[in-house]
Design a protein around this nucleic acid. Structure first.
Lengths: 298, 298
DNA sequence: CAGAGACTATACGTTTTCGTATGACGACTA
DNA sequence: TAGTCGTCATACGAAAACGTATAGTCTCTG
C-alpha cells in the first residue's frame, strides 16, 4: 500500500456512477464493461480510504463523502476538457474548439447566425454551444466565452459590454386580428398570455414591471424561453420576447410598449488566459461585433 | 486511434518533464522508469495532435504549445491534490490534511507555534505548510488557507481581517552595545544594515518609507526574510522585522521607531467551499485566534 | 407465485502497460 | 584523444488492467 495516486479514469468512472446511479448504467454511458466500473470504484475507495457508495442490488447510493468530493472530480473533468480544447486550438490561425455559453434564446436566435458566418471564414473552427440559463463558471473552465445579462464580478475575466437588450410584450398579427389589440393592463384579462411555469427569485424580482401578469393568469406556462418565443410566433397569444428579435419578423407586433419594458445590460466575458488564443479571440470579437449590431437595431 | 482521452498519468509525466527538463530526470522525480515517461509523452502528443517537445540527446525542450498547455495540466495536478486533501478530511471530527500558505517569516515564527498547540488537541490533523512570498491562488486550490498582507479581491473566498502587523528596524543588544544606537537617518551610514537583494516593484513602492535605505548601502543583502531575521538575532546589524517578533526576544531592540514604521493589514482567507469542512474550519479559527493575540501584543 | 428484468459480484483468458536490460549518440574532461 | 557521464531509443519478460461469460439476488408484474 504505497501513496498511489488514483488514476484519472477512476474519477471518470466515479462521476459516471454518480450521474447514472448504477455501475451498469455508468458502464453503458462510458462505453466500458460493468466489472471495470466496479473495480474503479473499489480502487478509488481504497485509495481515498473513504466509502463512496452504499451498494444495493438496485443501484448504488452515494455517501456524504462522495457528494462532498464530487465537485472536485467535476472540476478535474472540466479542466481536462478545457485542456483538450486548448490543444485543438494550437497551431497557426483560427482552429480548434471554442466553448460558448449563453441562454437558449440568445444562443439559438442571435448567436447562431453570427457563428454561421464566422465558420464560413474559418472552416477549421469548431464551436461548442452550451445553451442554459444556469450561469456557468468561466473560472472553472466550464466554458471559454459566455454571454450574460449580468456584469461579471470576478476578476481574472475579460469583460466587454455589448449594450442593452430590451424585452417587450409581443403577439403575432394573426392573433391580434382575431382577438384585438389590448390598450391597457385590464384588456389582458380577455387574452391568452404566455408566461413562466415555476416562480423563482429571479422572476419575483420583476414583480413591479410584470404588473398583473401572474402565474395563475397565464394561458401557457413554460420555463423554456425558446418555447415562449415559438408560441408567440405560432399565434398562441401574447408573451414577452426580445424587441430585437420581434423586429426581424414583420408579423410580430409589440403590445403595451409603455406599460411593459425590460432592459438588460448584456456582457461578453472570457477568461483572461484565453487572450492569447487566436481562436477564442476571433470568436470573442465576432460575437461582440454581431451582438453590437443586434442591440443597435432599435 | 479513437478519441481516447489521455490518462491522468500522461499529464503527470508531462509536468515532470517540463520541470526536470529530461525524460530521465522526470523518471527519477516521479519514481518510474525512463521508458515509461517516454511512452507517456509520445502518447500525449499523439492524443493531442501537438508536438510538445523537441527531442535532443541532452534533454527535451518544450514547444510553445507545451508552455501554453502547462497551466491546464498544473491545474489538474492542483485539483487532484485538493481532492486527496478533502478525502483525508472526511469522517467525523478534525482529521486529514489542510494546506496553509503564508510568507516564510509569518509561517515559521508565528504560525508554527499556533499549529503546534492545535495539533496537540487534534492528533489526527496533518498540516501542509507552504512558505512563499508568491501569492498562491486559493481558487486554483493551490492551498486551502492563506495568510496574506493584502485584502483578497476575489469573490468566492471567505476573508477575515486579523489586524495590523507592524514592521520596524531592530538590532541585537550586543550589536548596539558595540556600535552604538543610531539617533537619526544619518547615523545609519556608519552601521551594518540588512536589506533585500533584488529590487522589485514591491520594494520600490516603499521608497518613501525606506528613506536613505537603498540596496547599495546594505551590508547584507538577501531576499529571504527569514535570513534577515536570523541576521538581526545573530547581531549582524540593523534590519527590518515585525515588531511583534522583536517583542518576544528581550535582546532585540527597536531602532529609529519614529523614522521607520510600516503597517500591513493582514487577512486570513479560505475558499468558501471549505466552510463545511470541520478540519479547515478548525485550522482557520485557530489561526485567527492565534494571529489576533499576536497582533494584539503591541 | 412464477418469471422477466436489472443490478452487483466473481472467474478466467486476453490485451495492454510497465520495468529491466541494453544499445547508440553527444558533451565534457583529463 | 580516449574516457566518463549524461541523455534518448529499443527489445523482451513480468505484472496489471480489461472484457466476456456467468452466478447470485432483489424488485416488479401478470
Amino acid at each position: 500500500m504505497t501513496t498511489n495516486e488514483p488514476g484519472w479514469e477512476l474519477y471518470r468512472s466515479f462521476l459516471g456512477v454518480l450521474r447514472e446511479g448504477s455501475l451498469s448504467g455508468a458502464a453503458r454511458a462510458l462505453g466500458v464493461a460493468q466489472p471495470t466500473i466496479g473495480r474503479h470504484v473499489q480502487a478509488l475507495e481504497e485509495a481515498l480510504g473513504v466509502a463512496l457508495f452504499t451498494r444495493s442490488q438496485l443501484g448504488l447510493k452515494p455517501t456524504e463523502a462522495a457528494l462532498a468530493l464530487a465537485p472536485y472530480a467535476q472540476s478535474l473533468a472540466d479542466t481536462s476538457a478545457a485542456l483538450l480544447r486548448a490543444a485543438s486550438g494550437q497551431g497557426p490561425g483560427v482552429r480548434g474548439a471554442v466553448r460558448v455559453s449563453a441562454s437558449d434564446v440568445v444562443g439559438a436566435e442571435v448567436l447562431l447566425p453570427i457563428l454561421a458566418t464566422l465558420r464560413r471564414t474559418y472552416p477549421q473552427l469548431v464551436v461548442e454551444l452550451v445553451l442554459t440559463n444556469r450561469v456557468e463558471d468561466l473560472l472553472k473552465r466550464e466554458a471559454d466565452i459566455a454571454v450574460r445579462m449580468l456584469k461579471p464580478t470576478q476578476a481574472a475575466l475579460v469583460a466587454r459590454r455589448v449594450g442593452t437588450i430590451e424585452v417587450g410584450l409581443h403577439a403575432h398579427r394573426d392573433y391580434l386580428d382575431t382577438f384585438g389589440k389590448p390598450a391597457n393592463w385590464d384588456d389582458l384579462a380577455s387574452h391568452s398570455v404566455i408566461g413562466f411555469d415555476t416562480e423563482t427569485a429571479y422572476t419575483r424580482s420583476f414583480a413591479k414591471v410584470l404588473g398583473p401578469l401572474r402565474r395563475k393568469s397565464f394561458a401557457l406556462r413554460t420555463d423554456s424561453d425558446l418555447a415562449q418565443l415559438a408560441a408567440i410566433r405560432a399565434g398562441f397569444g401574447i408573451g414577452a420576447c426580445q424587441v430585437g428579435l420581434a423586429r426581424r419578423d414583420a408579423a410580430l407586433v409589440r403590445v403595451l410598449p409603455k406599460q411593459f419594458a425590460l432592459a438588460f445590460d448584456t456582457w461578453l466575458t472570457m477568461h483572461e488566459d484565453l487572450r492569447d488564443s487566436p481562436s477564442c479571440k476571433a470568436v470573442f470579437d465576432a460575437l461582440h461585433a454581431g451582438l453590437a449590431t443586434y442591440v443597435g437595431k432599435r
